[in-house]
């Protein structure tokens, strides 16, 4: 048996196949993309212990991820905030973890997207489980998982063929995504859920920007808009009392130790914004949250400089608009001397 020749041939063929696949993907306009998954989140969460009372942690859902640009913030305040927002998630599990499992007493921004914030406290419900999964991973991750993640980063940053996301976008490049894209016809007769393609890029500190295509290609942005509207099918009654009580308990504990709590309502537009204001009337949800928590609160509609934006897919700001939003919001925060924790 000529094992060495067989091994060499197998390696050469594998390499050729990988190079061909990479070249094909690049020719289709695909670029390397970092997987903003629980590993990356956990790496950022691990930095909390080294933060001081002058630092800022961002929590919330995807709007905080897209709309608050970390590098812009750093240029304006000389400090880079820590991004711990989790897309499609309730912010409550992450805030709870920060309050209960750390002694951080700086500033925590909690992004409020009412449909997620007031959704549930049931651990198995998706908005809760998505965030809790990240928190649990941080506390339980093994050294092997850390090693795998560290080794995967150079590949993620340099190869389009490993552009795979925890969200399992149908336009990922792994086998599962390729199979998802095969249309086999609608046998159930139910209206199919529209394809939900990746519309953002994250870097290794989780600074997230809407993709250029989403911001400029109205047909593509329309595909995301259809997803938001289709999500209305899964509407559940909000658990306002339970979520409010859960959050307020943590908020009280955090502010009692000198922490600075800031609530932020990011912009939304079009029919989605209309649906949100009908489903979650401001006076019943946002205003009550602000009054009961006693936190500094910033609703985009209250500021001319924050309400000048049109979200391309109705829910998030484009990269350039997010820069402006961050810049305008930081200047408001500075004006209000809002970034100073009591514990300082």
């Amino acid at each position: 048996m000529q094992l060495k020749q067989s091994l060499s041939l197998a390696l050469v063929l594998a390499l050729l196949a990988l190079v061909s696949w990479e070249v094909y993907l690049r020719s289709q306009g695909r670029v390397p993309d970092l997987n903003d998954d629980k590993n990356l989140w956990a790496r950022e969460r691990a930095k909390v212990d080294k933060l001081t009372n002058e630092d800022v942690i961002l929590t919330g859902s995807s709007r905080v991820l897209f709309d608050v640009q970390l590098y812009k913030w750093e240029r304006l305040t000389s400090r880079k905030p820590l991004q711990l927002a989790s897309p499609g998630s309730s912010p409550l599990p992450v805030f709870h973890d920060l309050v209960q499992n750390t002694d951080f007493a700086g500033t925590i921004v909690v992004g409020v997207t009412e449909g997620l914030f007031f959704s549930t406290t049931f651990p198995e419900a998706q908005p809760w489980a998505r965030a809790q999964n990240k928190v649990d991973h941080y506390h339980n991750r093994t050294y092997a998982q850390r090693l795998n993640f560290a080794l995967s980063l150079p590949f993620q940053k340099n190869l389009a063929l490993v552009s795979i996301n925890e969200e399992e976008w149908p336009d990922d490049t792994n086998l599962k995504a390729l199979l998802t894209r095969i249309q086999l016809g609608n046998r159930s007769g139910e209206e199919p859920f529209p394809p939900f393609n990746n519309f953002a890029h994250a870097d290794d500190i989780r600074n997230t920007r809407m993709s250029e295509r989403t911001a400029t290609d109205t047909a593509f942005a329309g595909s995301v808009q259809r997803v938001w509207m289709a999500m209305g099918r899964f509407h559940r009654e909000p658990e306002k009392e339970a979520t409010l009580a859960y959050f307020l308990e943590d908020a009280r504990k955090f502010t009692a130790r000198g922490g600075n709590l800031i609530l932020l309502r990011c912009p939304s537009s079009g029919p989605l914004a209309e649906r949100e204001s009908k489903g979650f009337p401001r006076e019943l949800f946002w205003d009550e949250l602000v009054n009961q928590s006693g936190a500094r609160a910033y609703h985009y509609k209250d500021y001319e400089s924050l309400s000048q934006f049109e979200c391309p897919e109705w829910s998030h700001l484009s990269g350039p608009d997010a820069d402006v939003f961050t810049s305008e919001w930081v200047s408001i925060l500075k004006q209000d001397i809002a970034l100073t924790a009591k514990a300082q």
């Binding site: 092997a144 090693l147 795998n148 080794l151 995967s152 590949f155």
Partner: peptide, 11 residues
């Protein structure tokens, strides 16, 4: 450590 992981490959 999973046998199909990058970590195992290096190890």
């Amino acid at each position: 450590m999973l046998f199909n992981s990058l970590g195992f490959l290096v190890f």
